[in-house]
């Protein structure tokens, strides 16, 4: 390992310890793709609740909602991709146990961009004429001050207390690299947040970053994040290509856990009652593989 100092390496529990009830947290990835699931599981192990969660939502939101940690979801959808509807989110909406700020996907992008740019809002055409304006009574429109005079939706900044993202590689100073096809909006989530924490599949020495991908794969720079956690399998069961695809069998097991309250209790007892190592072990048992020794923390 080269570089100065010890970097900003943290543990999953360290990150969870930075969160407080009532915070607004943003979660990177998209649907059931490259979600910081190990960090989400760390939140579940902490006592944090009453969260507002901003996300292109998938099982990250589903798990937090199922455990009653969420007051409000801010999103345009909630999906497991290969399973169209996120079952726990769906149930929470139908039971009226969460509040929902339902936005067009592009509005969510614009709200993050406004926050990242420290602007109060950004004008956007999306939303006009639709019921997004009806169900979000706080949304306003703004008129162009120029000759066109066009009226547009004024998407307010989505400022975050904390952002959580998961990338393929990072160094211990906070430079992060994605190796899959899409950066999603992870950089914007970080810049929209007071503090951002990045988990990754593997922490590598800085000089090894470019061995894995070109310079433009270095999506996150160290000015964007405040902590790095090495969490192999940290996006499981969402996809983290090219390291691993979505674990469809396990995702189906997760989706089935929304069927009855007992099914959820069984799921959380089996997979969420211990630390990340015991989660991995339980997943290996589910997949019928012999339990291998777990990797330890950052090198």
């Amino acid at each position: 390992m080269t570089g100065t100092g010890t970097g900003i390496a943290m543990s999953l529990a360290d990150v969870a310890g930075q969160l407080e009830s009532g915070m607004t947290i943003g979660i990177g990835g998209w649907g059931s793709r490259r979600k910081p699931m190990a960090l989400v599981r760390a939140i579940l192990r902490s006592g944090v609740g009453d969260l507002t969660v901003v996300s292109y939502a998938g099982p990250d939101v589903g798990l937090l909602v199922a455990e009653g940690r969420v007051r409000r979801v801010v999103s345009g959808f909630s999906s497991l991709d290969s399973i169209a509807l996120e079952p726990h989110f769906r149930q929470a909406r139908q039971n009226g146990t969460i509040e929902f700020t339902e936005l067009d996907e592009g509005m969510l992008h614009w709200g993050l961009l406004a926050a990242a740019h420290r602007l109060p809002f950004l004008p956007i055409r999306a939303g006009l004429g639709s019921d997004v304006m009806r169900v979000n009574s706080q949304l306003r429109t703004v008129r162009s001050p120029y000759a066109d005079g066009e009226e547009l939706a004024a998407m307010p900044a989505l400022r975050l207390d904390v952002a959580l993202i998961h990338l393929n590689r990072a160094d211990r100073r906070g430079n992060g690299q994605y190796l899959g096809p899409d950066p999603y909006f992870d950089d914007l989530f970080c810049l929209a947040a007071e503090r951002a924490f990045m988990s990754c599949e593997e922490v590598v020495p800085t000089e090894r970053l470019l061995a894995a991908g070109p310079p433009q794969s270095l999506l996150i720079n160290r000015a964007m994040v405040h902590g790095v956690v090495e969490a192999p399998g940290g996006a499981h069961f969402t996809s983290c290509v090219p390291d691993y695809p979505r674990d469809e069998e396990f995702q189906a097991e997760y989706a089935a856990s929304a069927a009855t309250p007992q099914a959820w209790q069984d799921f959380r007892a089996r997979y969420l009652s211990g630390d990340e190592d015991s989660y991995r072990q339980a997943v290996r048992q589910f997949r019928g593989r012999p339990a291998a020794p777990a990797r330890t923390g950052p090198p």
Partner: peptide, 25 residues
């Protein structure tokens, strides 16, 4: 997005996704 009253839907579906932005653009 949902079936029934938005505040407490009978059936929560996908959500608006990008439909508002698509249809206006």
């Amino acid at each position: 997005s949902c079936i029934g009253d938005w505040a407490r839907p009978k059936a929560q579906l996908l959500g608006v996704r990008g439909a508002p932005g698509n249809s206006i653009n």
